[in-house]
Design a protein around this nucleic acid. Sequence first.
DNA 1: CTCATCGTTTGACGTGCATCGAACTTTAGC
DNA 2: GCTAAAGTTCGATGCACGTCAAACGATGAG
Lengths: 105, 105
Amino acid sequence: MPRVLPEPSVDSFDLTVILSALAEPGRRALMTELYRGPEPIDCAVIAEKADLGLSSPTISHHYRVLREAGLIRTVAEGRKRIVTVRRGDMEARFPGLLSAVLTER
Amino acid sequence: MPRVLPEPSVDSFDLTVILSALAEPGRRALMTELYRGPEPIDCAVIAEKADLGLSSPTISHHYRVLREAGLIRTVAEGRKRIVTVRRGDMEARFPGLLSAVLTER
DNA sequence: CTCATCGTTTGACGTGCATCGAACTTTAGC
DNA sequence: GCTAAAGTTCGATGCACGTCAAACGATGAG
């Protein structure tokens, strides 16, 4: 039985929280991988692809920050965590933001 | 004799620095006022309109952070500082970013 | 030249954050 | 039931950042 971890509603999105989350290089790397690849996906797979040299507590912390900012949805399935980008919600509230931040040039 | 204060070239723009600058509410308020109003403009006028309750050293610090991120150009004219948003440079490097962040909804 | 004004720099203070190791929780496999 | 595996939580640590008061230029007015 998959459970969706707590996340903010679109109405309560806070741009300060969102930009702070995206400002951190490691978190932005995770988001970039997520944004480009297929979803939903195991968060460990993304973490591996992003290839940050960080411990698992730190990775876990970063995923939590992204989730609490409203950037991703996390679903617990067994021992794994399946994540998706909340594209629609972000686009509804801050159109073009994810594309501008996560699209390399 | 107006002097342009030191600023990064477009090539050396750093998204981490830019997002960190925009993540701070006071700085983003300054940017929003700048982005909307006529330019170039006296930075003190913008600071007044933004109506942050901050000391002048702090305001000065925030303008410096914005400038060093590449978000604004500052020209010293006498005792005043005239600022403009570097729209073109930002658009060239991160299309849609300023609009997404500074356009209220 | 003198002085008041605008802004910056410096130094200090408190807070927040990224990071890790260790301990804990939950789940899958046997 | 055990045990191993995947993530999370907790506590501690070090560093970065926002903030202000005080001191310091630089400039315009008289």
